[in-house]
Simulated scan of single mutants.
Amino acid sequence: MTGAPETARNNTVNTVLGPVPADDLGVVAVHEALLSVVPGAEHAFDITMDRAEIFENLARKLREFREHGGGTVVDSTGMFHGRDVRLYEALSRSTGVHLVASTGMGPEELLGGYFLTPQTDPPTPWPAGKFADLFTREVTEGMVVPRVERRGAAGLVATAADPAGRTATEESLVRGAARTARDTGVPVSLRYGADAVGDLDVALDEGVPADRVVVGGLDRTDAVHAGAPFDIARRGAHVALDHVGCNDDDRYVTDRQRVALLLDLVREGLGDRILLSGNTIGEAVGHPAYDLPYSHVAATFVPLARSAGLDDADARRILVDNPRDLLTLR
């Protein structure tokens, strides 16, 4: 293993190339994927992963993001969905875009049996403390590069629950992720299951401050109809409307409906809780691509919101200030 990564809690953010001043992040695409691989797909006989082609494709997309004023992309896929720290380091050096990588995992269906305790009947999940130790070491010692070394520190701990409802394993994941955020100063991202407020409450029960938590998927139709974005924001957590650009899926509201929701949150005095992203997948292996530009939020969606009444100060707050404050080590 290499030595522990350079870290500092002095208005800095962990990127794959080390800590950078938080004020250097610029416009942030806060909930995206770079290389997303269905676990095991890299071993399939009918799938070829050309690393040079993957690099060139992602570099092109990141340069386009930078040309539209983008500064930072957050890969929030966690540990086991294709995260390639060396690739991300090379991409950041080549394009000048800051890249923040994440630790964490979930939902349960994507974990694999290793993270259950098979000696019991039925199998029981890892306790929250084991997940917390795993995730915390990826922040304090560096992200694992199988199997012999650790590299740069994770800047985010991410987890997700089943849309049908949080399982016992997923509760352990949420608690472990929250403990890591509480103890290391990185934020925690929760893709909620069936109950956004309930999932947030599990995290808050571990003592992590609400403003260190972002609840994702809050532009889901069920969340909007239930008023969950307002409930989450009033509790002090960040509200992620993170499927911007998705206009043909009944599970999510449309961009025009997102604009209306965004403006309603701003009018309620909750503009400092809003985060936007597109859930873009730069390179997909083993599942369908989602080839939305990383620049879509800033270049297309925010101008739509401005035409509907969003002012420049609030636009900057949502694109720059809110993600900066979330990602800054505390």
Rank of each mutant, 00 (worst) to 15 (best):
H238Y: 15
V139S: 05
D50Q: 11
V27I: 15
L326W: 00
L276Y: 01
G70L: 08
A90E: 15
L329F: 09
P5E: 04
P187M: 12
W126K: 04
E53K: 13
V239A: 03
H243G: 06
P21M: 11
T7S: 05
V244W: 03
F80V: 14
L261Y: 05
E268V: 07
L25P: 00
E108G: 03
E171P: 01
V174A: 06
D314G: 08
E268F: 09
D222N: 11
G165F: 09
S92V: 05
Y294Q: 03
A315G: 07
M1T: 14
G165H: 10
V13L: 11
G207Q: 12
V148E: 14
H68T: 07
A240K: 01
S295R: 03
T221Q: 14
L17V: 11
R220S: 07
A168Q: 14
A237E: 06
F45M: 12
D231F: 10
G40R: 13
R147L: 13
G286H: 06
V174I: 15
V174K: 00
H43D: 13
S307D: 15
G71C: 05
C246N: 12
L204C: 08
A223G: 07
P127S: 14
T184G: 11
A315F: 11
V28Q: 03
T120M: 07
A168K: 14
R234Q: 12
A153F: 00
P187R: 13
H31A: 14
H296M: 08
A29N: 01
